[in-house]
Every structure is written in C-alpha cells, then in structure tokens.
Nucleic acid binder design. Structure first.
Lengths: 106, 106
DNA sequence: GACACGTGCAACCGTTTGGTTGCATAATGT
DNA sequence: ACATTATGCAACCAAACGGTTGCACGTGTC
C-alpha cells in the first residue's frame, strides 16, 4: 500500500512526532513517553513516516534514532506554492483597492 | 465529528477538487465530470471540504457554486512555517560549507 | 551463558473512510 | 400542472486506520 506525505501528516499524533524529531533525533521509546499510547502504536506511526521518507533512521547499538527528513516537508511546501500565488495575488488586489480608496478619498 | 484541514487534504480526490475550484467556482455536477466516481461521492467530498471551511458555497438558482477559501490554505502554510525555518537554516549552512570549501580550495 | 532492554512484526478489534444505490427536495422549463 | 434537472441525505458495504496484546529477535550487561 502506497502512502503519500499528505496522508502521513493527516494524523495529529504523527504531526506531533514530526515536531519532536524535528528538534532532535529520538528513539521510539523516548517518543512514546510523550504520548499516552503504547510504544507499539508509536512504532507503527514511525513505520508510516519512514515509508514515505518523512523520517530517517540511524541505528546506534540497540537503539534506533529517528530524525526528520526536512526535504520531504519542502515537498508539501512545493504543493502549496500554486496556492500561495493566489493568496499573494489577492493581497496585491487588496493593495490596489486601498490605493483606489485613497485616491477617491472614500 | 470535527475534521481538520490536514485530514481534508489527505485524500487525492479532494486535493484535485481543491485544484479545480481554485481556478474558478464550479458546481458539484461540473466537478464530478472530472472524475470517474459518482456525483454523490463528490458531494460527500465537498461536504467535508465545506465543514473545515476549505471551500465556500454560493447558491445561484438551483445550482450551487463551490469556490476555494484561500485563507484556509494559508493555515497549512502557517504550520509549515516552523519547518521552513529549519530547511532555510540548512541551506544557509550549506552556503557556509561551500564558502569553507572554496577558502580551503578543496 | 543468562538476563534485561529496545525494537519491530503479526494478529486481532472497533471505528472511520470512501464508495455505492436509492430517495427526497427544490428550482427550472414546457 | 408536469417532467426534468441539480443537489443533498440516509443506508449500506468493503477496505483502511489506529489502537491493543503477545511474541520474536538482536544488543548490551552481569
């Protein structure tokens, strides 16, 4: 089953995990300590995040450190780009509107 | 059941609908013509998109025109902001690295 | 070697999701 | 008035999701 980034960030727990490993690499156990779910549930989330390459593993002894793969987050940003153009355009139009209003002294 | 924006954009069909209504306001029928699912399925997606205020309805006679609520897309952008800082920082560090490499003529 | 620790995986389970079909309702055209 | 069109809603269904528990496996520690 193929998962994409958007599905990965849909779950609030996964977004929280992303926020955690963005700051520093963490082990599943350490991550699970932040939630009131089981370690295995967190492990499942990490599996999904790994599958769509949002996080990276690094084995150190018997511990595995997970860290954020930031370029995948940029992928979301790239998708947003097309819409950013729209809201910036709207903002420009607002600027124009304000200009017109100023000229007409409304 | 409360739905958030991230769950709304998780579905590929919904992202396609967003892309459609971003260009111009469209009726459910017109939107459904772009997909090989039933009109009712599209209607369900529109319901979800409306619930989390990603699209806007405008009744015109017996037709309902749906259009994108662009400020909600900006909400996703706001969430991304914290991570944008990270990848821009990485980019800066890459710049520094390149500087060092140039100085040392590696 | 024996044991505890850190982790992933499989099996199971209730809930949600995304789809279908059928129907009700309101606006339009004849 | 009557048929047609545009739409939403309810009921149903298979598949996926997110969680649990139990277990297996590799790694350190004694």
């Amino acid at each position: 089953m193929k998962r994409d980034v958007f599905q990965a960030i849909a779950d609030p727990t996964r977004r929280a995990i992303i926020a955690l490993v963005a700051i520093q690499a963490m082990t599943p156990n350490a991550i699970a300590a932040h939630f009131d779910t089981s370690r295995q549930a967190v492990s499942k989330h990490l599996r999904i995040l790994t599958e769509c390459e949002l996080v990276q593993q690094e084995q150190r002894g018997r511990e595995i450190y997970y860290s954020l793969e930031i370029h995948k987050m940029k992928e979301i940003d790239d998708w947003l780009e097309q819409y950013r153009k729209i809201w910036e355009k709207r903002f420009d139009q607002l600027g124009e509107l304000l200009e017109v209003m100023k000229e007409k002294k409304v």
